[in-house]
Design a protein around this nucleic acid. Structure first.
Length: 765
DNA sequence: GACCTGCTGCGGATTG
């Protein structure tokens, strides 16, 4: 054991380490001890799950606390999940008992008397969620300064989960308010397994003192990665009859016989496809699709071990689970190893699935982001991923859940579903965009690139939340104090003083706040009601949900908008149900098992794709190499996509000039594509966008070039463009924000005028 | 064309 850092620890902590039988401190633990005990810096620790991060942070923190006990909470651990807090509570309590450092927890499931006891006699370490910290300000505002007056450390677990979203800004605001209210300057420690850019983590932890943040990364043995992409073709959409489908080989032959004319013409394409003699994919009269082929592959490759298979949507997860159960029962397996885990399932069912994963009996979970982070589920052999993920960050996070023992490789099988070419296929369809994205993202993952988060977002909804919370906490204050606390010292730095004034006037119009004659702002009638409601503590939007119950057993919850009428069917927890009764006033749906199958569609918004990913996809399309991680189908379809790109000369130019329209492939992300679309709209040019391209209803190349010239030379007004957006805001309190402010916020964070201009200018060269 | 997370006090009845 490295003697020097060990000797920096309190003797009681040294003893605890001996007693636990540790042979040596890990490298990140040594560095953390040196930084926390030897400097005044903040800290970010980046290491894989189960890599000893929590101990790295807490061994030195506990040492400091043991040497200097105070009658106040001295360290806070903020966790994003209740289950994670419960896990860490057990570990910390074990470490702290003999040192006589009290460990407390505060979240929604903790009994009120324990919370009361902590408020009356604050001490030691407190494990808490952001929302419960919010409840401290709302319900015990006057006690905050006493309870936290000797706070010296704040540890934030799963730091990356707070980046760029409402909950992260909420947390930053709470921590900033805590410092001001209690008059303390705690040191911050962030923990994460997936950090793109240490610089962003530094900026999140301490925006004013980025160089006071030490980053510690675990550089110990990198594990081997085994990675494969498999592509299956979906029968063409439409009609109840099974539609004919090409094999990947036929798709390649089709691409080779394309001409620039046939690509744009449904008739010519149909004739070419007819020549290839497409087959109706069926098995005993039942049509099979790509998901059936994925299920067959899973049955072959995920047997006899514990695995996670992630999907992009709950509907797809449920559908896949249903098909796997079908196969297991048809083949009469003695045990069905497939379980389902996602956010719409009841706590009981989720815990059952978690227990099965931990049990040692081979289990494969079909899951969503619920199993992406946090709770320990033991040793996972391999990861399946149904459909190309939305972000590289999520792909990395998911891959990281496998091969947890050092000597084991990380394994991922990524399944891509592409439409078989059909008579109405667009050029974009013929380029197999999901396969391109899967390869592009894989290349970026291997390069260690991850999406950065938007630092300049205004977060209008969360600012409204914090204004209301602050007024509730204090009873009222002048507008200037709000500006100083939230916008200058707090996280809402992208909001100017005049923008805050516009916002406050808007809030007064809605009676959320009002100004008393002396000038102070206080809560208005509606503001009082909102801050008193149970769901105020949460900064993010939540939908109205109905509980789905079979007899006394709760299966899960579904949004009110997707509940089928009585007599119809739904798919939940991998089982088929029929709706028996709906009790509207109790928000309850009674169901029973039934053979009828209808996948439940969950509502949701589309994701944003980063420009770097689109640029990589272009490279994939124009490169010649065929990565070894592609299966034969994927290689064949990639060849077909490249052949098609060659036919329409996408290798030489990004534009395809048709008779009646002009299709441009700018290879930019969602934000820039949205901006290009709004620019065309403000120039009154009819157009459509798809996954890869924007098609202008222009017949003359000159008109197209004139538009690009106009955009690249003028100084487009981003706010004026944002005014044209159809959906201005969807976060919790956006409805209370003045439209002008939402336009300014959207101009900043949902559009990218400078990249749009640069893209137009580059196309002109 | 998407996923995830989280949270009262208080009055009244009942019990020791």
């Amino acid at each position: 054991m490295s003697q020097e850092p060990f000797s920096l620890l309190h003797p009681g902590v040294q003893e605890a380490i001996w007693k636990m039988g540790w042979k040596a401190l890990k490298a990140i633990q040594v560095q953390a001890i040196q930084t926390i005990c030897g400097t005044e810096k903040h800290l970010v620790i980046c290491a894989p799950t189960a890599g000893g991060k929590t101990e790295a942070a807490f061994l030195p923190i506990i040492s400091k606390l043991a040497a200097n006990p105070q009658p106040s909470v001295q360290a806070i651990y903020v966790g994003p999940l209740k289950a994670l807090i419960n896990d860490q509570f057990r570990r910390l309590e074990e470490l702290c008992t003999e040192l006589e450092i009290p460990v407390h927890r505060w979240h929604g499931d903790v009994p009120a008397n324990q919370k009361k006891a902590l408020r009356e006699k604050p001490s030691g370490i407190l494990l808490i969620t952001p929302e419960s910290l919010e409840s401290n300000f709302i319900n015990y505002g006057v006690q905050v300064s006493r309870v936290y007056r000797h706070l010296s450390f704040v540890v934030i677990d799963e730091l990356h989960s707070f980046f760029g979203n409402e909950r992260g800004v909420h947390l930053q605001s709470l921590l900033s308010r805590l410092q001001n209210t209690a008059g303390v300057a705690p040191r911050l420690v962030g923990l994460s397994a997936t950090l793109a850019d240490p610089q962003l983590a530094r900026a999140f932890i301490a925006p004013d003192a980025v160089d006071k943040v030490q980053v510690i990364e675990d550089t110990s043995a990198k594990r081997e990665i085994k990675f494969g992409i498999k592509t299956f073709l979906e029968p063409p959409p439409g009609g109840s009859m099974p539609a004919p489908r090409l094999t990947p080989g036929q798709a390649l032959a089709l691409a080779s016989s394309l001409t620039p004319q046939s690509v744009g013409s449904a008739k010519e394409l149909a004739a070419l496809i007819e020549e290839r003699k497409p087959v109706i994919a069926s098995e005993k009269g039942k049509s099979i699709d790509a998901l059936d082929e994925v299920a067959d592959d899973i049955i072959r490759n995920f047997q006899g071990s514990t695995n996670l298979i992630f999907g992009n949507s709950k509907m797809a997860i449920e559908d896949l689970a249903d098909r796997l159960h079908e196969r297991v029962s048809k083949e009469k397996w003695p045990l069905d190893p497939f379980v389902v885990h996602h956010g719409s399932l009841s706590k009981d069912l989720r815990e059952e699935a978690e227990a099965a994963l931990k049990s040692g009996v081979p289990t494969t979970a079909l899951c969503s982001a619920t199993l992406e982070m946090g709770i320990d589920i033991g040793n996972v052999r391999a990861i399946g991923q149904l459909d190309t993920p939305w972000s590289v960050a999520s792909m990395v996070q998911r891959l990281g859940r496998s091969g947890r023992r050092d000597e084991e490789p990380q394994i991922m099988r990524l399944y891509v579903r592409e439409d078989s070419p059909h008579s109405r296929s667009s050029l974009t369809d013929l380029l197999f965009p999901d396969l391109l994205r899967a390869i592009g993202m894989t290349r970026l993952m291997l390069e260690k690139w991850l999406e950065p988060f938007e630092q300049n977002r205004m977060h209008v909804s969360t600012l409204i939340h914090q204004i209301l919370s602050f007024l509730k906490q204090t009873g009222g204050m002048p507008a200037a104090n709000l500006y100083r606390a939230l916008c200058q010292r707090g996280p809402f730095r992208s909001v100017s003083q005049s923008q805050l004034e516009v916002l406050l006037r808007g809030l007064a119009e809605h009676e959320l706040i009002q100004q008393i004659p002396q000038g102070d702002l206080i809560l208005g009638l509606l503001g009082e009601r909102i801050t008193a409601s149970f769901d105020f503590y949460v900064a993010f939007q939540t939908a109205e949900e109905f509980v789905i119950r079979c007899g006394q057993a709760e299966i899960g919850k579904l949004p009110a908008t997707v509940i089928p009428p009585v007599g119809e069917h739904l798919l939940l927890a991998g089982k088929r149900w029929q709706v028996r009764d709906i009790v509207f006033d109790k928000k309850l749906v009674l169901v029973s098992l039934s053979p009828g199958k209808k996948p439940t569609p969950f509502p949701g918004a589309a994701g944003e794709i980063h420009t770097r990913v689109m640029r990589e996809m272009k490279k994939v399309l124009l490169d010649k190499d065929e990565p070894a991680y592609l299966d034969q189908n994927s290689k064949t379809l990639l060849r077909a996509a490249r052949q098609t790109a060659f036919i329409v000369r996408l290798d030489a130019t990004n534009v395809v000039f048709g008779k009646k329209n002009i299709q441009w492939f700018p290879w930019v992300g969602t934000r820039t594509m949205r901006t290009l679309s709004l620019l065309a709209r403000s120039a009154k040019i009819a157009h459509e966008t798809d996954l890869l391209s924007i098609t202008y209803q222009l017949s003359s190349p000159e008109d197209f070039l004139a538009h690009l010239r106009e955009v690249s030379k003028s100084q487009p007004d981003a706010v004026a463009l944002a005014r044209l957006m159809p959906n201005k805001g969807s976060e919790k309190f956006d409805d209370f924000a003045p439209e002008q402010l939402l336009d300014e916020a959207n101009a900043k964070s949902r559009l990218d005028v400078s990249e749009a201009r640069a893209t137009c200018a580059a196309q002109l060269v």
